[in-house]
Design a binder for these strands. Sequence first.
DNA 1: GCCAACGTTGGC
DNA 2: GCCAACGTTGGC
Length: 152
Amino acid sequence: MRHWLMKSEPSTFGLEHLKASPNRSTLWDGVRNYQARNMLRDDFKRGDLAFFYHSSCAEPGVVGIIQILCAGYPDPTAFIRNHPHHDPKSSRAAPRWYTVDVKFKRELKRIIGLAELQNHAALAAMPLLRRGNRLSITPVSAAEWDYILSLE
DNA sequence: GCCAACGTTGGC
DNA sequence: GCCAACGTTGGC
């Protein structure tokens, strides 16, 4: 089982939106970056866990834990004309973008903020903390996962 | 294949 | 709102 960190802007889709979704579940659509796409397509498996990270907001940081419900599959929103995530270069015959279904697992007892994460040498290798990183999906090692949870 | 221009991300 | 960093596009 792998661990991940998945960013979302709470003003667009935050942990509260996920909790309010039917079955507290949704598809993680709209990823339009090839590196992140490759991870969704090739590496995500049913049963993986991910940190839900709030970005571009007053208090950026890890806010919750979500479960990955299935392996990656073609992102259907890319096929829908007039959808904000539509991409005419992606087709059902040759899908360009991938998604996974995710489910709310739990909220952290407190937000573990970006500034706090940056203060721990044990987390220095996390792609999230690398200067200039903009990937919306990044892997988290088992050691990093446990360490972050120990901060909670 | 190079690289300038442009658009986006995301912290501050 | 600013701006650094990065990815993508497209002319050549």
